[in-house]
């Protein structure tokens, strides 16, 4: 049984069809990559799965439970937790306060000390989140989500704007937590980063599912190469 199953999920905003008929399944323990050009509907899809916006068609099953997507608070209590493209943290509050809030939000908070250590937040605990370097703020955003002990973590472009070394460190952290049992749905623009992590990949184009399969098959798929990977054909 898959952890997350989308059945023809779709949403239209007025006359605009943002996402249409997306069906896919994420298995427990996977890192599942979601690729697509700008405007393909990746973030919209994550917004639906996490309960931030309501789909206009289709349905979602999570851990065998039908009836989703649920409103965001109910999704979180089922273990579906997301991060944001422009990293969100409580910028006016200290890192310590940020973590306290996330822990208080969850009835079953993760071990804060472990997260602080792994994400390198120890030295900046008393600094306002708004003063953190970009990469550290990213880490804080993910640590906040992990504080809620998600079963499924939705990461929306976590590597954007990071340097090479920072991207590698982030990849290690994602893999570490995946090995501890957190299933990951990873939206990424950075193909190399995504392919290095993902077990399976879906490619969205103009709101529709263009491809679904293994990372290796994805890189060989002519349609995908045409729409998205074309300009990278040489180094693929």
């Amino acid at each position: 049984m898959s952890l997350l199953e989308l059945e023809k999920l779709g949403v239209r905003f007025g006359g605009l069809v943002a996402v249409q008929d997306v069906s896919l399944a994420v298995e427990e323990g996977q890192i599942y990559g979601l690729l697509g050009p700008n405007g393909a509907g990746k973030t919209t899809l994550v917004n639906m799965i996490s309960g931030l916006i309501r789909p206009t068609s289709g349905s979602l099953r999570f851990a065998g439970e039908a009836g989703g997507p649920w409103p965001i608070a109910d999704a979180v209590s089922r273990g579906i937790v997301r991060t944001f493209q422009q990293t969100r943290a409580f910028l006016g509050l200290s890192v310590r306060e940020n973590l306290r809030i996330a822990a208080a939000a969850s009835g079953r908070a993760a071990d804060a000390a472990e997260l602080i250590e792994a994400f390198g937040l120890g030295p900046v605990l008393d600094r306002p989140a708004g003063d953190l370097p970009y990469a550290t703020l990213r880490h804080l955003g993910i640590a906040l989500a992990l504080t809620l002990k998600p079963r499924l973590l939705l990461l929306d472009e976590p590597a954007v704007g990071l340097t090479g070394g920072e991207v590698d460190r982030l990849a290690r952290l994602i893999r570490d937590w995946n090995l501890r049992g957190v299933t990951v749905l990873l939206i990424e623009h950075n193909v190399r980063f995504l392919m290095s992590l993902a077990d399976r990949v879906a490619v969205l184009d103009r709101g529709r599912l263009l491809f679904e399969g293994t990372a290796a098959d994805c890189q060989r798929n002519p349609e995908v190469i045409d729409v998205y990977l074309g300009r990278r054909k040489e180094d693929a």
Binding site: S50, I72, V81, R82, F84, F90, I101, A105, A145
Partner: peptide
């Protein structure tokens, strides 16, 4: 200092993030 108080701070600072953390 309670969980509700922490939730209120979250509401003040960033409503969307507060929701994403499952805060009612």
């Amino acid at each position: 200092r309670s969980r509700l108080g922490a939730a209120c701070l979250a509401v003040r600072e960033d409503l969307t993030l507060a929701q994403a953390l499952g805060i009612r």
